[in-house]
Simulated scan of single mutants.
Amino acid sequence: MRVLAAMSGGVDSAVAAARAVDAGHDVVGVHLALSAKPGTLRTGARGCCTVEDAHDARRAADLLGIPFYVWDFAERFTQDVIEDFVAEYSAGRTPNPCLRCNERIKFEALLDKALALGFDAVCTGHYARLSVVDGRPQLRRSADAGKDQSYVLASLTSEQLRHSLFPLGDSTKTEVRAEAAERGLAVAEKPDSHDICFIPDGNTRKFLTDRLGEQPGVLVDDETGEVLGEHSGVHGFTVGQRKGLGIQAPAPSGRPRYVLALEPVTGTVRVGGAERLSVDQIVASRPVWPSGEVLGGIAGPVECVAQVRAHGGTSPAVAELVGDQLHVRLREPLQGVAPGQAVALYRPDRTAGDLVLGSATITTTR
């Protein structure tokens, strides 16, 4: 196959490209220039897709003996990921920018361009298992539970998955680093990027305030209606947040307060005790079925495992499609579940890796 290897400049994508070469594919490496300020450099493990990363990707491609290109996707990334991120927070929702980047950049914009140029598939360094059974893609958790990225890939369509390769799915991070060192890849010990790549200093509140300005409002006790303080914008908060609320007086019980709900129209941030954070019902919109079959082809309410965060936030659940909305009843309540997050559904399988049934965007919780 002709394979386009997306090379971020990190160890995972470099080893994934190397394995694609070893598999006998005709591989071309490409680095996506996503920053509108290409002179920006990585600071330790913060940020990605920088000039430094582009150089690291090129050196890896040279070592592998494959052609290498840099494609400018900065405008598309700004529109589909950064502006979407800002708009979602402004509306009182909590988006996952990594999920959106996979969905709209790597497996939409990049994949579309790759197919138009005659490539058969895009290869990435994601930790997830992918196979085809009876002509349908099956996306599963990776062998390395701590690095599993199936959650942020669960929004991909079956057609996108048919043109995707995830060579690292059966490996652990330790194995990948060891292999990179054996191959002589300079990125073998390079730190993983973390946090939000386009907010390298990690200050999300400042990033949003710089773009949305100050939008004063109040913090209100959800039980009593008492005004507890003021704030400069609901975009500075997310459901489940405990620190940085700006409330001077402690709760009568002496226990911490958490953000329970955001009301952007009135500028109200509702807060309360941890016990009021528990959620056992989720309604989500725009469901996507990676295999192409609704809930994996299982009729009626489906026993599954629901996940609401990239790492952690799982519960046994019962899921059902009602009209065009996904209804999920959690058997074990979860905390910090916010509108805008994705809920991914899995069918447990201890031997082959849990199978992804579908994903949708959370609209309401109870």
Score class of each variant (00 low, 15 high):
Arg331Gly: 13
Leu295Thr: 08
Gly296Tyr: 01
Asp349Met: 08
Val337His: 00
His311Val: 10
Arg347Asp: 13
Gly296Thr: 02
Glu293Tyr: 03
Gln335Arg: 15
Gln325Arg: 15
Ala342Pro: 00
Ala344Cys: 14
Val328Thr: 03
Glu320Met: 11
Gly353His: 01
Pro339Ala: 01
Thr314Lys: 15
Ile298Phe: 11
Leu326Lys: 01
Gly323Cys: 06
Glu332Tyr: 01
Val322Phe: 04
Gly323Glu: 08
Gly296Met: 02
Ser315Pro: 10
Ser315Thr: 07
Thr351Lys: 13
Leu330Arg: 01
Gly292Val: 09
Val305Met: 13
Ala319Val: 08
Ala306Lys: 02
Pro333Gly: 07
Val305Cys: 10
Ala306Asn: 04
Gln341Trp: 00
Glu332Ala: 12
Ala306Asp: 03
Pro301Ala: 11
Ala344Asn: 06
Gly323Ile: 04
Cys304Thr: 10
Gly340Arg: 05
Val318Cys: 12
Arg331Gln: 15
Gly300Gln: 01
Ala310Asn: 12
Ser291Asp: 13
Thr351Phe: 10
Gly292Ala: 08
Trp289Pro: 09
Ala342Lys: 05
Ala338Pro: 05
Leu345Ala: 08
Ala299Thr: 14
Gly353Trp: 03
Pro301Phe: 00
Pro348Tyr: 01
Arg329His: 12
Gln335Met: 10
Thr351His: 11
Ala342Thr: 14
Ile298Asp: 11
Arg329Ala: 15
Gly340Gln: 11
